[in-house]
Amino acid sequence: MIWRYILKRVFWMVPFLFAVSIVAFLLIQAPPGDFLTTYMAKLGESNEVLDQATIDNLRQRFGLDQPIYVQYFKWISRLIVGDFGMSFEWRQPVSDLVWERMGLTLCLSFATLLFTWAVAFPIGVYSAVRKYSIGDYIATTIGFIGIATPNFLLALILMYIGVVYFGSDVGGLFSPEFKNAAWSWAKVWDLMKHLWLPVVVLGTSATASLIRIMRANLLDELNKPYVDTARAKGLSEFWLIMKYPVRVALNPFISTIGWVLPNLVSGAVVTAIVLSLPTAGPLMLQALLSQDMFLAGAFVLLLSSLTVVGMLISDILLVLLDPRVKYD
């Protein structure tokens, strides 16, 4: 039954992603002009001028002279076989540019998600069980500050503290000596050392809101009759809270997978620039600005796919966790 559900959902992803690809393509085409107009403007700034013949030649080579639907079908038909096309700006295949960045983005998002859960879960439970205690007030206050502080500001503060008080190397995900090195255990360790800062910066506001959600949900559940039933069985207070109300209040946690991924990628562009992270955000922004359409298109499509996959994972987990959720 569950397999049928998963299959069905995966099947439905196909037309959905197709629709997303159309929207993505149209969005990239929406600003006036194309890569060449932007390119020429840039050249114009440095007083270089291309003659019309070269421009036409380039335009033809890039296929920019064709109607938009032809361009789209060219793009999508190559995409299906895994060819993302060439980046105009970088003069490189898009896939070479994208995969490492997407990999790091995924790695960062996942780490942030784990961090968010690890922090928000115990604090949220504590806050609810010890409602109106000093600990609850402290958690609530920190939570609100966490929600209210812009990420980039937090990034700047933490970088300042890191550099001035701990003398650590902040910014980026790797130390200079590892930046272009091949993957090794030393590089992984170096990544770990750098990862904590962006993880804390990116995870803080999500953590804060999750604490609030967990607290509110658990407070609703704590007074339900089934908790009393468990208590009347002779279960210890800790286990009965963990087994029953927390389990029911867990649903929003699972749902976070769905929204945390896209949120991290798109919402984190500013932070990523401040922290000079080699993730997808900054490169995507650059590609959009220069109308580097294949590169931008690849990013938009991959991010959308991530979101869809995230939603799928969270839905499947929900079905597994909560028997009341029906999947047919």
Binding site: P225, Y226, R231, A232, K233, G234, Y244, R247, V248
Partner: peptide, 21 residues
Amino acid sequence: IRGGRIGMIFQEPMSSLSPVH
């Protein structure tokens, strides 16, 4: 004693049993 020597049943049979176990 709870559950072992003195058992208890409640009014609402729907909400007195856990919905997810």
